[in-house]
């Protein structure tokens, strides 16, 4: 992506390691390992990959629910975090004469003012909302925290406005969260996220727990809110058809690394990375004719443990195109034209 293209969020070489105890040693679990991407204002970037690949960690790190291990996060023109490493054009860390990375300007801002602009919606509408709070108080809480009203009346007006926005009946304001169905709880969750008028929302599997017939209602709501408010989403989900439907672009992760990133239609029609290919071919298509014709590329085995990360390209242990080079180094994410990025030596 060209440097001057407009983006809302830019992430560079982001790493999120968790210290894990193994016997007497503490070793790093590399949940997110050197990924870069950007999100444009008002767009939806889908994020897919098998469970344990680091999708949730990416979302939570962006919102600074974790302290990033390394990398740089730029939001709406402001650098929120920078660990100071410099990178050359091949994506390698620039080393000084002493063989250690050259460290430039470090940045680590206070996130409180940015919390208003970056929000999160969770998978489980059952556990992410306090069942003993009324809808009015759940949606009102962020308004209270950020002092976004001058009078009780204005508070109530805002809450009712938000409820209407997400298609909740105003009469339900005094009901408790546990009285609502899954789809309605997800609406409450998003009304709460929208209360502070954010520019960016991380949606972590927001429709995965919902019934098919309700899923469509909630997917439409996300799409309509974006049209109305211009909010950008990082949309994490494991249902690739839902992600394709809602996303402008899609990023594919495997074991903490970014494997492919492209326009949503382009990724689905012309997937290049071997991992994306097998992921897409595994999706059962709701059409018997297509199902009879298509052959699944069945991936052998499971995702390896991130504590046992293969050297080089982490996908090589399940990849049918793997060569010697794949075991030696991780391929860089390179532009194959039209903003279609792929990290693979052989495809």
């Amino acid at each position: 992506m060209s440097e001057n293209e407009k983006y809302l969020l830019k992430v560079e070489h982001l790493k999120q390691y968790f210290p894990v105890r193994r016997g007497f040693k503490t070793i790093p679990l590399k949940a997110v390992d050197d990924i870069s991407f950007s999100v444009k204002p008002g767009e939806t970037l889908g994020l897919v990959g098998e469970s344990g690949c680091g999708k949730t960690t990416v979302g939570r790190t962006l919102l600074r629910l974790y302290q990033p291990t390394a990398g740089r996060i730029v939001f709406d023109g402001d650098v929120l975090f920078d660990s100071g490493e410099q990178y050359d054009e091949n994506g390698k860390v620039v080393l000084g004469a002493d063989g250690k990375p050259v460290i430039g300007n470090k940045v680590d801002v206070n996130m409180l003012p940015y919390r208003k602009q970056m929000q999160m919606v969770f998978q489980d509408p059952y556990s992410s909302l306090n069942p003993r709070m009324t809808v009015e108080d759940i949606i009102g809480e962020p308004l209270d925290v950020h002092k976004l009203y001058r009078s009780r009346d204005e508070r109530r007006e805002k809450i009712l406005g938000l409820m209407e926005l997400v298609g909740l009946n105003a009469e339900h304001a005094m009901r408790y969260a546990h009285e609502f169905s899954g789809g309605q709880r997800q609406r409450i969750g998003i009304a709460r996220a929208l209360a502070v008028n954010p520019k960016f929302i991380v949606c972590d599997e927001p429709v995965s727990a919902l019934d098919v017939s309700i899923q469509a209602q909630v997917v439409n709501m996300f799409e309509e809110l974006q049209e109305k408010l211009g909010v950008a989403y990082l949309f994490i989900a494991h249902d690739l058809l839902v992600v394709h439907h809602i996303s402008d672009r899609i990023a594919v992760m495997y074991l903490g690394k970014m494997m492919e990133l492209a326009d949503a239609d382009e990724l689905n029609e012309n997937p290049i990375h071997p991992y994306t290919l097998s992921l897409l071919s595994a999706v059962p298509i709701p059409d018997p004719e297509t199902a009879r014709k298509s052959k699944r590329i069945v991936l052998e085995g499971d995702v390896p443990s991130p504590l046992n990360m293969p050297t080089g390209c982490p996908f090589r242990t399940r990849c049918r195109y793997a060569t010697e080079q794949c075991a030696k180094e991780m391929p860089q994410l390179t532009d194959r034209g039209n903003g279609h990025f792929v990290a693979c030596f052989n495809k």
């Binding site: 169905s181 789809g183 309605q184 019934d211 098919v212 017939s213 309700i214 899923q215 469509a216 209602q217 997917v219 439409n220 799409e223 058809l241 839902v242 394709h244 439907h245 949503a264 239609d265 689905n268 298509i285 709701p286 059409d287 297509t290």
Partner: peptide, 24 residues
């Protein structure tokens, strides 16, 4: 019919899904 209209598939990727209204 409603169920089939409400799911994303190859031919409605760039259209709005048509949900089944109401609650279970």
């Amino acid at each position: 019919k409603g169920l089939l209209r409400s799911i994303p598939k190859a031919d409605n990727m760039n259209e709005k899904l048509i949900p089944i209204g109401g609650t279970p």
